[in-house]
Simulated assay, not measured.
Amino acid sequence: MNDDLPAQLRRLGLSPQEAAIYLTMLRTGRTSASGLAAQLDWRPEEAERCLGRLIGIGLAAQFGTDGTEAAPVDPAIALDHLSHTRVAELRQAHCSALNAYRDYRRSVHPQATEDLVEVVTGGGIADRILQVERAAESDVLRFDSPPYHIPAGANPTELRNLERGVEYRVVYSRSAVENRVYYTTNIQPCIASGEHARVLPTVPVKLTVFDRRIAIVSMSFVEAEVNDSLLVVRPSSLLSALTGLFESAWRSAFPMHLSDRVPPALRPLHVRILELLGTGVTDDAIAQLLGISRRTLSRNLEHLNHRAGTSTRFQLALYAVRNGWI
């Protein structure tokens, strides 16, 4: 028998005594409350009470003409009921904790609007960002631009979220894409894992919206020098406006990854070059991001222009868009 079963049963809502009765019944089969009391060295009324609880939730059934005996039954329905009950209890506890915290905030700042907007400063910023992102359930919308409160490297939290089905749509600023370390360790792995990415010369604000129910607004370069803080925005007209701002920018931004209509004969390097052409970064920046020389980039651009029948990088990017590559 699984040694961890008593702990698992307690997690589902059984008391230690009820779990002990159930495990004893699994070993002995059909028995009575007095028989269980004798085996466990309990008072008969205690065994009778626990057995009655197991019968009540469907983990045991009564037998015999007088119903004094019981035996364990298929636990599927009962365990489903217990798990749903525990989920409901956890949700109620979650709501109670949130309500208690909001009452506390109102008592400290009765005239403030912290139910809608919270200011986080200093050392608590990175922890709050990670806390909110780990709790994302369905979708994340983001304007990505330096500076970063979390070191500008890999984002394992996003990768885990993508793996469990959370959708990410990110609009990068050109300055984010031009950062070779950030492009290589963060942007590329996230796109490869399913992130939908686009780019603009600049983004209007540093913003992330989680599940359309909470947003984080960070400071720009200039603001961060004066006030290192972020705003946590909860459901309100402000949150709706920020979400609308993202959707408007998303529609006008340039995709950073190619569609499945790109010719399969293109070399991987050519695909990477096409991905970066639309970002607006310079040829020198593209060469640096790809780890190739300026001359190698020019030679590959000539090859792509020849294939597309174009003569400039702008015409090449336009051709890629019109032909559904991007």
Rank of each mutant, 00 (worst) to 15 (best):
177 V>S: 12
143 F>S: 01
224 A>K: 09
181 V>P: 00
190 C>G: 07
155 N>Q: 09
146 P>R: 01
189 P>N: 10
226 V>S: 15
146 P>V: 00
147 P>M: 06
161 N>D: 14
158 E>M: 05
195 E>T: 02
136 A>W: 04
147 P>R: 03
158 E>H: 07
207 L>D: 14
218 S>M: 03
130 L>F: 14
162 L>M: 13
207 L>V: 05
190 C>T: 01
204 P>N: 09
181 V>E: 11
221 F>L: 11
173 S>W: 05
194 G>P: 10
212 R>W: 01
140 V>D: 00
185 T>G: 04
199 V>N: 02
160 R>W: 00
182 Y>E: 07
198 R>C: 06
173 S>G: 11
158 E>S: 06
147 P>I: 00
135 A>P: 12
219 M>I: 00
229 S>D: 08
159 L>Q: 14
130 L>W: 14
143 F>L: 04
182 Y>H: 11
150 I>H: 08
208 T>C: 03
179 N>H: 12
186 N>A: 06
211 D>N: 11
200 L>M: 08
216 I>R: 03
141 L>F: 09
194 G>C: 02
181 V>L: 12
213 R>Q: 08
227 N>T: 12
164 R>Q: 14
130 L>D: 14
192 A>K: 02
224 A>N: 14
133 E>V: 02
168 Y>M: 10
217 V>H: 07
142 R>Y: 11
184 T>E: 11
207 L>G: 04
157 T>M: 01
182 Y>L: 13
195 E>C: 02
207 L>P: 08
214 I>Y: 13
204 P>F: 09
223 E>S: 12
173 S>P: 00
208 T>H: 08
159 L>V: 08
221 F>R: 10
208 T>K: 09
165 G>I: 03
219 M>C: 10
160 R>Y: 04
217 V>G: 03
224 A>F: 05
212 R>C: 08
210 F>N: 02
161 N>G: 06
169 R>D: 13
172 Y>N: 03
167 E>N: 07
